[in-house]
Design a protein around this nucleic acid. Structure first.
Lengths: 227, 227
DNA sequence: TGATTTCAGTATCCGGGGATACCGTTCAGA
DNA sequence: TCTGAACGGTATCCCCGGATACTGAAATCA
């Protein structure tokens, strides 16, 4: 446990709490540490949520597996990130998404009653939890927006401009495989490949290993306008 | 204000609080009442959120207006519903959606500092707020799922089965125009119309004014499976 | 280092659904 | 009650992108 202390104290959930405070809080919780191997299923859609989880080590993918076998990915979670909060405090209490270990990973699980106790006893953590859920809402809004976009070209433009942020000269890290990207955009891989080639032929972007050069940011913005 | 007291005390935000308690809380808040005419814009995407809102009267539509003029609707809010919570507690603080008065309406606006005071002072309301945000997350997940579905036929099946719930004999109220429905599904109206006709020709559903008869629930389920 | 799986580029095919237009009906506001 | 606007059904056109297949490259593991 001690080896994960930095991760925990740097997490959003414990943001603003000193190490000393956290050391007092942790022992009072009935936490458990769970381990998963790469590609292992952590939770399935439909399962009842019994607590919240924090990633201590490794990375997990939140995705939706449709009954047909198709799947789209929703987001990735890294060490320090939490999940399960929204499900726990919702009316339904059952997960609507699937969680899979992207790499070998370790999770901190805190059961519902401990969560409620902490939230009740510590207003800062309470407020942090609120903030985490609020940001989840904002992220999901972006996701809805992306999925609402009608063409692959626009989805690509949307994704790149989003990753670019405001600063940006025109080069972003994009450490993600085409397959994953296709799942993220919810399009087929060959179609994504085709459209990326077009954009490169038109000299709008250039794709290297793990990064994308944006040669014509204005044009990408125009693409979205025209939706 | 007195005339809206029932709406307020029946709201999810004040769930579990007695009328007496609410009567003590309200005067301490710096609330305002805002009025909007039908079709009037309440808030635009990009605006900074300065508090939370509760519908006292009327109905509003949460939608996303794309720069091209296209729009899709996200959900409707009714008296007693609140909004703005997630935006207020998020890192960005700016709305990502547009809000429009569906009918003439009156809103209760509670500024940020009053919200924080109440949440801090009253653990039940705090927990209610958490619950509201959590349910928002779950709803948005459903929305992502709907938008991720690839064909109109499946979207229709998904929407109907969702509205049907679990009980269901095979008849649901559906007080929504085809135009609105198309915007909700994020498809074009003629295409929705075409597909609905097909489903009626195949004797799967029957559409009446404001309601839908489901004649073959099993088939609707199959449609989704095959996605 | 070789072997096996996963990933990526590319071509072909073709069906779903968007855009558009037109018209009859219904609704709402004067 | 009347009138213009919004809504709804339907047809035609045609493009975007999904499904599929095949090949080579890259990565993973033994």
């Amino acid at each position: 446990m001690q080896k994960y202390f930095d991760t925990i104290s740097n997490s959003k959930l414990f943001n603003g709490k000193t190490k000393e405070e956290i050391e007092k809080i942790l022992p009072d919780m009935k936490y458990r540490i769970l381990e998963f191997k790469k590609k292992q299923v952590i939770l399935n859609s439909g399962e009842i949520c019994t607590g919240i989880y924090m990633i201590l080590e490794g990375e997990i993918e939140v995705q939706k597996n449709l009954e047909s076998g198709r799947l789209y990915s929703i987001l990735y979670k890294k060490p320090g990130d939490t999940f399960g909060g929204a499900v726990l405090f919702s009316d339904t209490k059952s997960f609507q998404v699937d969680l899979m270990a992207e790499t070998d990973c370790k999770l901190l699980q805190i059961p519902e009653d401990s969560v409620r106790n902490v939230l009740c006893a510590d207003s800062r953590i309470n407020s942090n939890m609120m903030n985490i859920m609020a940001n989840t809402v904002m992220n999901l809004n972006k996701r809805v927006e992306l999925f609402a976009v009608t063409s692959i070209r626009r989805k690509i433009a949307f994704a790149i401009l989003n990753a670019l942020g405001d600063g940006e000269n025109g080069c972003i890290d994009f450490p993600i495989s085409k397959k994953q990207w296709a799942e993220h955009l919810n399009v087929s891989r060959p179609s994504l490949s085709r459209e990326l080639k077009k954009l490169q032929d038109e000299n709008i972007i250039e794709i290297e290993k793990g990064r994308i050069l944006i040669k014509n940011t204005e044009y990408l913005k125009e693409i979205i306008q025209n939706d």
